[in-house]
């Protein structure tokens, strides 16, 4: 069993008005040393199977559903999880 931690973000070339609002508001509150804000989405998936197959599967899931590849990029980490830990 694997736990996938998936991060989806806008590509740097795409304007993100939400991140701009957050950065501008932080600056107004005095945190004017914040140079950049990146807003994204975070997903955790538990998957069974061998690692190579699971990696390919996550790529497919991200490309078709979790990310819009026109505007977003993704990255993920995979960590082994024991079945006992999942049952808890």
């Amino acid at each position: 069993m694997f736990k996938a931690k998936i991060f989806v973000n806008y590509k740097p070339s795409v304007l993100d008005p939400k991140a701009e609002v957050i950065q501008n508001t932080l600056a107004r509150l005095g945190d004017d040393n914040v140079q950049h804000v990146l807003v994204g989405k975070y997903f955790e998936l538990l998957l069974s199977g061998d690692e190579a197959a699971v990696r390919a599967q996550i790529d497919r899931i991200c490309d078709t559903m979790l990310a819009n590849i026109n505007t977003e990029s993704y990255r993920f980490t995979l960590e082994p999880v024991s079945d006992a830990a999942v049952a808890e």
Binding site: V14, L15, P17, K18, N70, T71
Partner: peptide, 8 residues
């Protein structure tokens, strides 16, 4: 793609 309006 259709994204959030710039005004949010």
């Amino acid at each position: 793609t259709l994204q959030w309006n710039t005004s949010l």
